[in-house]
């Protein structure tokens, strides 16, 4: 009965659980890298290191320049982080996906390998 219980779980709730865990892991990575925030603020200044708008024309130009630099810095950092985030998520997706594909074969693979190793 326990073998049946194991098989029932492995090919039913167990497989679902593994998929759910992979999904949660990817979601956590997605949020930990703040991907929605990075996309929403991609062109925002970096840490708002902008000069306050001054009264003189010179100050206004300086503020404009500072602002442009700040935005450029912000954009660069965010894009780099986005690339790192996508790479991490891809890594999890590929290896996690592979594990999910292999999942139904694992209970058979174990005994097969034991026997195969002895026979070879």
């Amino acid at each position: 009965m326990l073998v049946v219980a194991f098989i029932q779980w492995w090919y039913g709730p167990g497989w679902n659980d593994a998929a759910r865990r992979l999904k949660n892991h990817i979601r956590t990575t997605y949020l930990s890298f703040s991907i929605p925030i990075l996309l929403a603020t991609l062109f925002e200044p970096w840490k708002r290191i902008i000069s306050p708008p001054g009264a003189s024309l010179q100050d206004k130009f300086r503020a404009l320049g500072d602002n442009a630099i700040s935005r450029a810095v912000g954009f660069t950092v965010r894009v780099m982080v986005l690339i790192a985030a996508v790479a991490t998520i891809l890594f999890y997706a590929v290896f996690g996906g592979l594990l999910l594909i292999l999942w139904p074969f694992l209970p058979i693979l174990g005994p097969v390998m034991v026997v195969g190793g002895l026979v070879l």
Partner: peptide
């Protein structure tokens, strides 16, 4: 080594069943 690997997979599947179910 394949036999040991097979044993490892059997232990792993048992562990997953025990731990998650």
């Amino acid at each position: 080594g394949f036999s040991l690997g097979g044993l490892m997979i059997m232990l792993l599947t048992s562990f997953l069943w025990l731990h998650r179910d």
